[in-house]
Design a protein around this nucleic acid. Structure first.
Length: 422
RNA sequence: GGAGAGGUGGCCGAGUUGGCUUAAGGCAGCCGCCUGCUAAGCGGUUGUGGGGGUAAAACUUCACCGGGGGUUCGAAUCCCCCCCUCUCCGCCA
């Protein structure tokens, strides 16, 4: 959510920001509503003031034993007027709030302006992509051949987009999660274990609702959503709180499964592990002081990419352009790992700075010292990392000419000594 | 699912015969004094959000005691509905 005052004072900047994101939203309607609401509010405030003053007078007169009759009648009329104005206020506020919740964040000034993924900027590439001497099978082929991946079972049990890992494949998932959590913990992230179902307030807090409700699984009888990312529960730990400056930055890491309906993406990447409805992910979240959030974003990217280094996978850091930016993000870097079998860069992490966008929705404030105004914290998060695509990359990039998969050194202890799959 | 208790400011916690209670008291925070030893004492100060006002303040005003309705000139206090938390019982892991 954006600051209402920013919209009021800077409508042109908001219009431009929305446009560069490729959104169409009626900013004028918001501004008009806001203005009407304000005028209504002022009228109501005036009457309420009168009511307060005169009601007090009634109290005084009563104690003094004087008549209050004509005041009663006058105030009754005023109260009625107030009721009318309040009804109008409620109506307008609801409308305005609905619109405000649908307004995306404003891109940071450093974000490249663009029209789509093609305008994203590759910031840097780590590692080398060697010349291929042999045909590398796509990950689903090798996974099923060596018996660690059972896509057919997943389809049978739940449907397309659900995966069964078997044997060392299942072990690999567990190993990856442990490696990731341990690595982040060493860097000062507090490990947390969070609910996988959350309520509406939590979803609104981090920006998934109301806009993206179709992308999520809803358990209707309880009105609970399956989390699309652990960002939601983690960030919402701090919803409606004041954070002391000396406690900043707050850093959390958590493992969780993530559930995504991904409506509207039919047809794209339907094979293998690339686009699934349920996947495991380790997330890192930071809640920081507004003055340092962009430095914190850079270090968050490093923390996430440390995992890719550990897994000996080549990757690139991509800065998203305005049109490709997520709804709540002000700036975002994607980490993309190279999968030579399908010859694609796979997004395995999105590292975003949301500035105060989520904090304003979730009411996460910093404790102030007397005299100064409250400020909202800045929130950041990134995957560190998402498993299926990482596994796809491992299967393909660490594939040997004999069709086996070499386990990266750092992972071997977590694999109970298993050095090769297959 | 059944029975009971309760939801008040950053935290704890008073206040329910309706009217100087935005809300005592404590803690914490801040400022100052005192004190010479990681502490204590004393005095002052500090809720949140919005509007108006100002260069910024000062100032002024409205709202807020889980949420939503209602009664009333006036509600933290009375009435109705909903939500949540806790305790006990049941059921399940």
């Amino acid at each position: 959510m954006l600051d209402k005052r920013l919209i009021r004072d800077n409508p042109e900047a908001i219009r431009r920001a929305i446009e560069t994101r490729g959104y169409t939203m009626d900013v004028d309607q918001i501004i008009a509503l806001d203005k009407e609401l304000l005028e209504n509010l002022q009228a109501a405030d005036k009457l309420k003031h009168e009511r307060n003053v005169k009601s007090e007078e009634i109290g005084n007169r009563k104690r003094a034993g004087k008549s209050t009759k004509e005041l009663h009648e006058h105030l009754k009329k005023i109260s009625l007027e107030i009721k009318t104005l309040e009804a109008k206020d409620k109506n307008l506020s609801e409308k305005l709030n609905e619109l405000l919740l649908l307004l995306p964040n404003i891109p940071h000034e450093s974000v490249p302006v663009g029209n789509g993924p093609e305008d994203n900027v590759v910031v840097r590439i780590h590692g080398e992509i060697p010349e291929q001497f042999f045909d590398i099978a796509p990950h689903w082929e090798i996974g099923e051949r060596i018996g660690v991946l059972d896509l057919e079972a997943g389809r049978k049990i739940s449907g397309r987009g659900f995966i069964v890992f078997r044997k060392e494949g299942a072990l690999l998932c567990r190993a990856l999660v442990n490696l990731m959590l341990d690595t982040h913990r060493e860097k000062g992230y507090e490990e947390v274990l969070i609910p996988y179902m959350v309520n509406r307030d939590a979803m609104i807090g981090t920006g998934q609702l109301p806009k993206l409700s179709d992308d999520m699984y809803l358990c209707e009888v309880d009105d609970l959503f399956l989390i699309p990312t652990s960002e939601v529960p983690i960030t919402n730990i701090h919803r409606d709180t004041f954070i002391a400056l000396e406690d900043l930055p707050l850093k959390h890491t958590a493992f969780s499964p993530c559930f995504r309906r991904e409506a509207g993406s039919y047809g794209a990447d339907t094979r293998g592990l690339l686009r699934v409805h349920q996947f495991d992910k380790v997330e890192i979240v930071k809640i920081v002081h507004p003055d340092t959030s962009y430095e914190e974003l850079e270090s968050l990217v490093l923390d996430a990419s440390a995992i890719l280094d550990a897994l000996e996978l080549p990757y690139r850091v991509v800065e998203l352009c305005t049109a490709d930016l997520g709804f709540a993000a002000a700036k975002c870097y994607d980490l993309e790992v190279y999968a030579p079998g399908i010859k694609k860069w796979l997004e395995v992490s999105s590292c975003s700075n949301f500035e105060a966008f989520q904090a304003r929705r979730a009411n996460i404030k910093l404790k102030k010292t007397p005299g100064e105004k409250h400020r909202f914290a800045h929130t950041l998060n990134g995957s560190g990392l998402a498993l299926p695509r990482i596994i796809a990359a491992i299967f393909e990039f660490h594939q040997t000419p004999t069709g086996r998969v070499k386990i990266p050194k750092r992972l071997v202890p977590y694999m109970h000594g298993v050095e090769y799959l297959g």
